[in-house]
Design a protein around this nucleic acid. Structure first.
Lengths: 242, 242
DNA sequence: CAGACTTTGTGCGATCATTCACAAGCGTTC
DNA sequence: GAACGCTTGTGAATGATCGCACAAAGTCTG
C-alpha cells in the first residue's frame, strides 16, 4: 500500500484506522451502495466479503475499526452500515477538487469525479494550453495555469490532482502546496517532493503495466507449473445482486 | 500495495522477489533511465533512494533480491543496474497489450503506453461505439468489440486493459480470459471475478480520491495538532541530477 | 602497503497486516 | 424460557515489510 503510516500519536488516540483498512472502505462503500439500490436490506460479512473480493475475517476486522455496527446472528443493515462508512470517509462533505492538466487523463477524471456524485466536486480545471482554456468540460470552464492560485483560493480547495506531463509535475505541485493544498493525487510519472504535512498519492499507469508484465514473465519462466498466481476473487453469487 | 502475494512455492524457489519490491522496480527503472540520460555513471544507494523517495536501506534490500550488482565503497553503475532491472521486469520484451474501451481513459493509456517505449506495444484498441471503430489512435486502428477474440489471437496478447464502464467490465473480462489473457489491468470501478491463474490489478480513480479525502478529514478533525501526516519525500539535491 | 574512509549487503527486531479460531451475543423455534 | 443455530467481534498466531545498525569489502591517500 500502500504506504508508510503517517499517523501521529494524537490522531491514533482518537481514531486509529489502519491505512490498509482505509484503502478498502471505498470499495465497501461502493458495493453497499449497489446492494442498497438492489433493495437488499441486510448482509452477512461472508456475503459482503465475497462480493468485495476479500476475506470475511478481514472485512469484519475492518468494520470493527469503525465501531460495532453489526448484529450477531444476523449481519449488517446495509443502509446503516453505508451511512457509517460514508461518514467515516467524509463522503457527504463534497470536497472541492482542482484538476491541473486537461489532457485525455484530466478529461477522464473530470467526467468521472464530476458526474457520479462520489463526494467530490470539481471546482477547477487548469491547463496551460490556450486552445483548451475557455472550453467547458463536465460543466466546468478550463482556466489558465496562471489562475491556479486564484481558482484554489476561490473555492478553498484542499485536494489537487496533477494530470500534467512529468516535466511540469513538480512545479505544479509546488504551486498547489503554496496555495494551501494538502492532498495531492499525482498521475505524472515522477516522484514529487513535498513538505511535511502534505499527503501525496501516486497513480502510475506505466508502473501498473510493468508489474503485470513482471508476473507475466515469471509465469512464462516457470513453464512447467500449474498454479501460478493465486490472486483469485469471488466466485458466483454476485450476479444476484449487482 | 498493494496486493496479496500471489506466488507459488515453485516460483518462490526460483526467484522469490517480494511483491513490495516488484512494485518499486519500475520506479527505480525510470529514475535510473533519467540518470543515464543525464550522463550520470554511478550512484550510491543514498542518492538513488532520495530521488526515488524511499529509504536507502529499503532500496539496497530491494536490489539485493536481484543480485549483487553494486560495488562496496562506490555505489552502483547506472547503466549496468538499469540493464539488470530491465531484464528482471521484462522491459525488453515489448509485451503486446490490448485495451478495451477507448473513452478518454483508454485514449490516455493508448498515448501513454504507445508512444513512450516502456516495454509495451499496443496491439489492439477495442470499443463498442461504432463512431470510434475505424478511427486510428496512437497509430492503432480501433476495432469493434466483436473482434476482441480475433485481435488477441492475432497478436498473442496476454495483457489486457479494461477501460470500459463498470457495467461492461465483467463481461469484457470473461472474454479476455477466455481468449487467453492472463494479466488484466482494470480501471472500471468494479470487482472482477476471474479464475485462478489470472492476475488482476485494479486502479480506481474514485477510490484514490476518497482515500485522500479521508486523510484530509482526519486532518481537519485533529485541529490542534501540528504534524499530521509524515508522508514526506526527498529533500533537495535531486535537481542536480534530473 | 597500511590505514582511513566510504558504501554495499544483510541479520535482526519492530511494526503493520492478514488469517484462524472461538467466545459472546442475537434471533428463532419448540 | 431453554436450547439451538447463526454471525459478529476479537485475541492470538502467522506472515510480510520496514528500518536500524553493522560487518564485509571495496577505494583512496600518503
Amino acid at each position: 500500500m500502500p504506504s508508510p503510516a503517517g499517523v501521529t500519536d494524537l490522531r491514533k488516540s482518537t481514531h486509529a484506522i489502519p491505512d490498509a483498512t482505509v484503502a478498502r472502505l471505498p470499495i465497501y462503500h461502493r458495493v453497499l451502495t449497489s446492494l442498497l439500490e438492489s433493495g437488499v436490506e441486510s448482509v452477512s460479512s461472508h456475503e459482503l466479503a465475497e462480493v468485495c473480493g476479500v476475506n470475511s475475517a478481514k472485512l469484519r476486522k475492518d468494520l470493527s475499526h469503525l465501531g460495532s455496527y453489526g448484529t450477531r446472528g444476523v449481519g449488517y443493515r446495509v443502509e446503516y452500515l453505508l451511512f457509517q462508512i460514508a461518514r467515516e470517509i467524509g463522503y457527504a462533505q463534497d470536497w472541492p477538487v482542482v484538476i491541473v492538466g486537461v489532457g485525455n487523463l484530466g478529461n477522464a477524471l473530470a467526467g468521472y469525479a464530476g458526474s457520479a456524485d462520489r463526494g467530490f466536486r470539481i471546482v477547477g480545471l487548469i491547463d496551460s494550453d490556450s486552445d483548451l482554456v475557455g472550453q467547458t468540460i463536465a460543466g466546468v470552464e478550463v482556466r489558465d495555469l496562471a489562475e491556479l492560485e486564484t481558482v484554489i483560493a476561490e473555492h478553498s480547495a484542499s485536494i489537487g490532482v496533477i494530470a500534467t506531463p512529468a516535466s511540469a509535475a513538480q512545479a505544479v505541485c509546488d504551486r498547489l502546496v503554496a496555495s494551501g493544498v494538502t492532498s495531492i493525487l499525482n498521475f505524472a510519472p515522477s516522484v514529487l517532493t513535498v513538505p511535511q504535512g502534505v499527503d501525496v498519492r501516486k497513480v502510475d499507469l506505466g508502473t501498473e503495466l510493468q508489474i503485470l508484465a513482471f508476473h507475466q514473465q515469471q509465469r512464462a519462466e516457470g513453464l512447467r507449473t500449474r498454479k501460478t498466481s493465486k490472486r483469485t476473487s469471488p466466485s458466483t453469487a454476485l450476479e444476484n445482486i449487482s
